[in-house]
Design a protein around this nucleic acid. Structure first.
Length: 605
RNA sequence: GGGACCGUAGUUCAACUGGUUAGAGCACCGCCCUGUCACGGCGGAAGUUGCGGGUUCGAAUCCCGUCGGUCCCGCCA
């Protein structure tokens, strides 16, 4: 149907005949000569319609609406010198049309314009309802291409490293813990249900038991939880697993993979190896396990300095086992007024949203004089004051913000304020600046955390992570040592977002059973839910481990987008609905009967 | 489950403190225009102000409910 792509034509093809196909980007009808910008995937070229070339041709051209699909036959010619368009890569030439075929018309007024020249914002609701039109626009076209390049690069890299891609089931069984499952009723097995996988976790481990040694998959995962700008009910992981690899070796390989992606997709050389922070250090210094290290304002514990103060908010917090931590806002005296950090102010409110009761502050004035509320000033002696200024490295003009109370809440509040202030004060470098890609490995996670509601242990990552050998000691002490053990787990954090995570897995069936018991499963439950895994581990399972990267998030960051919806061809809304197909939808009574399912939803008439 | 913001012509926005005929750009339709490139000129059509209720002499505007979208908390091993 066509000889060339619109955007590929250049002056050296002048006087050759071409056939082009594409969409009408826009028309300029001068009454005599008519110009059509014809657009296809490769770009745009100007088609010129000369009235001398026939009435029929001219009449057709006059009637064209934007986004009409055309085939053009014509000849490439140079534009008059004064008409060269330098903004267009094909701007030196044009195609003199000898024939126009309308391949498809546009029958109604378009809900929004496709042309790149119309950069008016479009409501996301409309974009999603007519996603096919949105995909035709430059932004989404580029994002999907970038996504493809990311996945392509990963595939090439992993193939070079002797990984093979294996598909794992989408219809599988529901497993305890973790997110809510999407369920699929079985027609054949009455009353029983499949679950869609939250990740291929168990299957990839069993592939290792199967001796594949190096597996990867671009895997669709499903979690029936509430959505966010970086969470969709179905999302894509680049899933890897390998045998006979240490944590260091796995990390090294994956850094190379990430560096390769950044190099191929963005042309950016990342510096390897990535820095590494233990989970404990991350919590101490940033209050979160996914710190954004593009800016400072680290959290500083001042427990030792303030524990004996008369100011009960501080000393009391420590007496009851909590902490007092602070961040130093450089030049904060100028940038943050008292109105903003006192009750009702935006900064105070941020702290409150994270559960903090208040937000104490100290302003450093000339000659290290301090300016704060009376209760703090009165109870702070000179030595404490000096220690505090030294520890926080606060200088004249700086503002120190304090969190006091339960360590967990202090961390959460200061983390939140830190991120909020970084945005407010413009401390985050331009995302296209090479220095702004701050990768960071977080390691040595705790195996478990306490579920407050149910007063029991829960796996922090998942219950298949291997514990640190030194932490658990000999077999007889496993039960006693496991709750405090660290896991051989690692997350890759980029600019405050978790983009991947993994671990070495347990390959010893006894230890695996012990971990299951720690999270409250009894022998029967272990046998019922995970019998197949335990059995597999007893038949020669190799030491193995792996990682999974969130492709949607990685592409989002590479594309500079703020939502993963802009990296997914057909995403769902926050209500997990597809506005284009209107899924999910009601099905017939017959379909339900076949599946042995009854609808308990009360319909309103 | 909870909090916040938003919803006006096909579309992007406007309409002051509640005030009488709800405006503008783009798109659309018609006429004119032979070198434009976000072409230009003249004219036209286009509205259940998401929906339902309330307050008021009077509601796009205030209140309640509801639907939809977005952001966030909870949740997401």
């Amino acid at each position: 149907m066509r000889s060339d792509g619109c955007g590929e034509l250049r002056a050296k093809q002048i006087s050759s005949n071409v056939q082009l196909c594409g969409w009408v980007d826009r028309c300029r009808d001068h009454g005599g000569v008519i110009f059509i910008d014809l657009r296809d995937q490769s770009g745009t070229i100007q088609i010129t319609i000369d009235p001398e070339r026939g009435k029929e041709l001219f009449t057709t051209a006059e009637s064209l609406k934007n986004e009409t699909v055309l085939q053009i036959v014509g000849t490439i010619r140079a534009r008059p010198k004064e008409s060269i368009n330098e903004k267009l890569s094909t701007g030196e030439i044009e195609v003199l049309a000898t024939q126009i075929t309308i391949l498809n018309e546009v029958k109604s007024t378009l809900p929004f314009t496709v042309s790149i020249h119309d950069d008016e914002p479009v409501k996301e609701e409309l974009r999603l309802r007519h996603r096919y039109l949105d995909l035709r626009r430059e932004r989404m076209k580029q994002n999907l291409r970038l996504r493809h390049n990311t996945i392509k690069t990963a595939r090439r890299f992993l193939e070079e490293e002797d990984f093979i891609e294996v598909e794992t089931p989408v219809l599988t069984r529901s497993t305890p813990e973790g997110a809510r499952d999407y369920l699929v009723p079985s027609r054949v097995c009455e009353g029983e249900w499949f679950a869609l996988p939250q990740s291929p976790q168990l299957f990839k481990q069993l592939l290792m038991v199967g001796g594949l040694e190096r597996y990867y998959q671009v895997a669709r995962c499903f979690r029936d939880e509430d959505l966010r700008s970086d969470r969709q009910p179905e999302f894509t992981q680049l899933d890897l697993e390998m045998s006979f690899m240490s944590q260091e070796e796995i990390i090294e390989l994956n850094e190379k993979l990430i560096a390769k992606i950044w190099k191929e997709v963005k042309g950016i050389e990342l510096k390897l190896p990535f820095p590494n922070l233990s989970w404990q250090e991350a919590m101490d210094r940033y209050g979160t396990d996914r710190p954004d290290t593009r800016y400072g304002m680290e959290l500083i514990a001042v427990n030792e300095i303030v524990k004996d103060m008369g100011f009960k908010v501080f000393s009391g917090a420590i007496a009851s086992g909590g902490s007092v931590k602070c961040i130093t806002v450089k030049n904060g005296n100028n940038s943050l007024s008292n109105v903003r950090i006192k009750p009702g102010g935006d900064v105070f409110t941020e702290a409150q949203k994270a559960g903090a009761g208040g937000l104490a502050f100290i302003r450093v004035r000339e000659n290290n004089q301090i300016d704060t509320i009376g209760a703090i000033k009165d109870s702070l002696n000179n030595k404490q004051k000096q220690d505090l200024l030294e520890k926080t490295n606060a200088k004249e003009g700086d503002l120190i913000l304090f969190g006091a109370g339960e360590t967990e809440i202090v961390n959460k509040a200061l983390d939140r304020i830190r991120q909020y202030l970084a945005r407010e004060l413009g401390l985050i470098p331009d995302s296209y600046d090479n220095k702004s890609w701050n990768f960071l490995w977080i390691t040595d996670f705790p195996m478990f955390e306490v579920n407050d509601e149910e007063k029991r242990l829960e796996a922090l990552h998942h219950p298949f992570c291997a514990p640190n050998n030194q932490d658990i000691g000999i077999k007889e002490e496993w039960q006693k040592n496991l709750p405090q053990a660290r896991a051989k787990a690692y997350d890759l954090v980029l600019n405050g977002l978790e983009i991947g995570g993994g671990s070495l897995r347990i390959h010893n069936s006894e230890l695996q059973k012990e971990v299951f018991q720690s999270i409250g499963l009894n022998s029967n439950e272990i046998e019922e839910k995970f019998g197949f895994l335990i059995e597999a581990l007893e038949m020669g399972a190799p030491p193995h481990g792996g990682i999974a990267f969130g492709i949607d998030r990685i592409v989002m960051l590479l594309a500079g987008e703020e939502s993963i919806r802009d990296t997914i061809a057909f995403p769902k809304t926050q209500q997990a609905r597809c506005l284009m197909t209107q899924a999910p939808a009601v099905v017939s009574e017959n379909q339900l009967n076949e599946l042995h399912v009854a609808n308990t939803c009360i319909e309103e008439e």
